[in-house]
Computed example of a mutant assay.
Amino acid sequence: MLMAADTLSAKSEKTTNRATDTDRHVGTRIRERRIMLGLSQQQMADMIGVTYQQAHKYERGINRISAGRLYEIAQVLNVPVSYFYEGLNDAGVQDMNPRQRMCLELARNFAQIHNERHQEALSQLARALANDEQ
Rank of each mutant, 00 (worst) to 15 (best):
A126L: 14
N109W: 07
A111D: 04
A5T: 12
R99P: 00
M96E: 14
Y85G: 04
A67W: 03
E133F: 07
E59L: 05
S12R: 15
L129F: 03
D21F: 09
T28E: 10
L77A: 07
A10L: 13
N89H: 08
A128F: 11
R18V: 04
V93A: 08
L125M: 10
I30Q: 01
Q53T: 10
T20L: 14
Q134D: 14
M102W: 09
H114I: 08
M3L: 14
R127C: 05
S66N: 06
A74K: 02
R101N: 07
M36L: 11
V81R: 09
G92A: 03
I113A: 04
Q43W: 03
R127N: 07
D21S: 12
G61Q: 10
G27S: 03
N78V: 01
Q119V: 06
R33T: 01
M96H: 15
T7H: 12
R127G: 00
L129Q: 06
G87S: 05
T16G: 06
N115M: 06
C103R: 13
Q41F: 01
L122Y: 03
G68D: 14
E116D: 13
I35E: 01
E59C: 05
T51G: 13
F84R: 01
A130Y: 06
N63K: 05
L77F: 02
P80K: 12
L88R: 11
T28Y: 06
V76C: 02
E32N: 08
R24Y: 13
R31Y: 11
L70A: 04
T15W: 11
D46C: 03
H114D: 10
Q53A: 12
L129K: 14
L122A: 09
A45Y: 03
R60W: 03
T7W: 15
I65R: 02
V81L: 05
D23G: 06
D6L: 15
A130K: 06
E86T: 05
R24E: 05
Q41T: 09
N63E: 11
H114Q: 09
L2M: 12
R117A: 14
R64Y: 08
Y83I: 02
R60K: 14
D90Y: 02
I113L: 05
V50R: 10
E86D: 09
R60V: 00
T22F: 11
P80D: 15
E105K: 09
D46M: 03
D95I: 10
V50N: 08
D90R: 08
L129P: 01
H25E: 13
E105P: 00
Y83H: 15
S12P: 00
Q75C: 01
A45L: 04
A126P: 00
Q112S: 07
M96A: 11
Q124W: 08
L88N: 08
A111T: 03
E105Q: 11
N115V: 08
Q54C: 04
G87W: 07
E120T: 10
I35Q: 01
T16Y: 15
L122S: 03
V79Y: 02
I73A: 02
E116Q: 12
M47G: 00
L37V: 03
